[in-house]
């Protein structure tokens, strides 16, 4: 037998049973974003075997789904990329707005720019990208991007910036007085110069693991609200700020893929997570809000009214939904980011 045919044989012998059978559901979601107890409950309720596979970014997920042959039924695109998914015909028009539990969706999460009226997606979680600061070290105002762009002396050398390019540049552009996705070169230059001037005060540009904050190796970071909530649980010194110059709001959404194999089970899942008690499981696990009315009652104590969940009235106007920049703007973003991290 040739090696090639041996190879083929081994490949055949090892093939996991393709998950096409009745009673299965293949979910493709960000890492650490899917509560095990939610899946367990869904499996028990509908006698469906759920397989969870994880990805690390919208880009990876999109590349894979666009290539085809992926075998997934459900994906969780962020609001900013949902229009692209729809435009490319990657999502099934499953009309969640006709589903039984749709009545629970908060109306403010129905009329939205990425899927107006909810024909393709239902809310998974929403959150904000702001700044997190150790208030034991820094006593000043934390509701400002100056925390990382014009850092106070106490925090210098202990600041992290998450390498989420668009989040960081959006915040910087707003800080210097522009609008995200701009192609106005004066604004872009100001933003770039601001970032490069601030960089020597930073320790890292990284998806820093939590223990660095808890151990106070890092005392401030551009961060996500839910992550900040988890840190605060371990080290009460940390507080989450909503920069008044402008910060991002985002939502990740659940959608059925156009080439899903298990459409009926996927629809069951969409309906399932719009039930308040189930949506609460998602919030308890991810520490983000979910957009389902009545789920507060089922949440862990202190979560529904946590400062990371409740945007202060006076700062509400500073929050903007993240958009997908057109390629020209994105090219500038990439250039700025390369200059920053080179």
């Amino acid at each position: 037998m040739t090696s090639a045919s041996r190879l083929a044989l081994a490949a055949l012998l090892l093939s996991a049973a393709p998950a096409l059978a009745e009673g299965t559901l293949n979910i493709y979601n960000f890492g650490l974003y899917t509560p095990p107890d939610l899946l367990e409950k869904f499996e028990k309720t509908y006698d469906v075997k759920v397989t969870l596979t994880e990805y690390d970014s919208n880009e990876t997920a999109m590349a894979k789904i666009e290539a085809g042959g992926h075998g997934f039924d459900i994906v969780m695109p962020s609001a900013s990329v949902v229009p692209i998914y729809i435009e490319k015909g990657l999502l099934l028009k499953s009309e969640p707005n006709q589903m039984e539990n749709f009545k629970n969706v908060d109306p403010k999460w129905v009329e939205i720019y990425w899927d107006n009226g909810r024909h393709y997606t239902v809310p998974w979680v929403w959150g904000t990208t702001g700044v997190m600061v150790n208030t034991k070290v820094y006593k000043g105002d934390i509701n400002t991007s100056a925390i990382f762009l014009d850092p106070p002396e106490e925090l210098k050398g202990k600041i992290n910036v998450v390498p989420s390019m668009n989040d960081v540049i959006d915040m910087t552009i707003r800080y210097v007085g522009g609008e995200p996705c701009t192609t106005d070169k004066a604004v872009l230059k100001a933003a770039r110069d601001k970032l490069i001037a601030a960089k020597p005060s930073w320790a890292s540009i990284d998806y820093t693991s939590f223990e660095k904050f808890i151990n106070e190796d890092i005392n401030a970071s551009v961060f996500w609200s839910g992550a900040a909530n988890r840190i605060r649980a371990e080290n009460a010194g940390f507080a989450y700020g909503y920069p008044k110059e402008g910060y991002s709001l985002w939502q990740d959404n659940v959608a059925i893929l156009a080439d899903a194999q298990n459409v009926e089970n996927a629809k069951l899942f969409l309906n399932f997570i719009m039930a308040p008690e189930n949506a609460a499981l998602i919030s308890n696990y991810t520490r983000y809000g979910n957009g389902i009315i009545g789920s507060d009652a089922f949440m862990d104590p202190g979560l529904a009214d946590a400062p990371e969940m409740i945007i202060p009235e006076n700062l509400k106007a500073a929050g903007h939904f993240q958009q997908t920049c057109p390629p020209e703007a994105q090219a500038f973003y990439t250039r700025i980011w390369t200059d920053l991290t080179k």
């Binding site: 970014s57 880009e59 990876t60 590349a63 989420s164 390019m165 668009n166 390629p327 994105q330 090219a331 990439t334 980011w337 390369t338």
Partner: peptide
């Protein structure tokens, strides 16, 4: 740098 172009850089 290469990873960035295939990821966030979308180039």
């Amino acid at each position: 740098l290469i990873e960035m172009q295939f990821g966030q850089g979308r180039n």
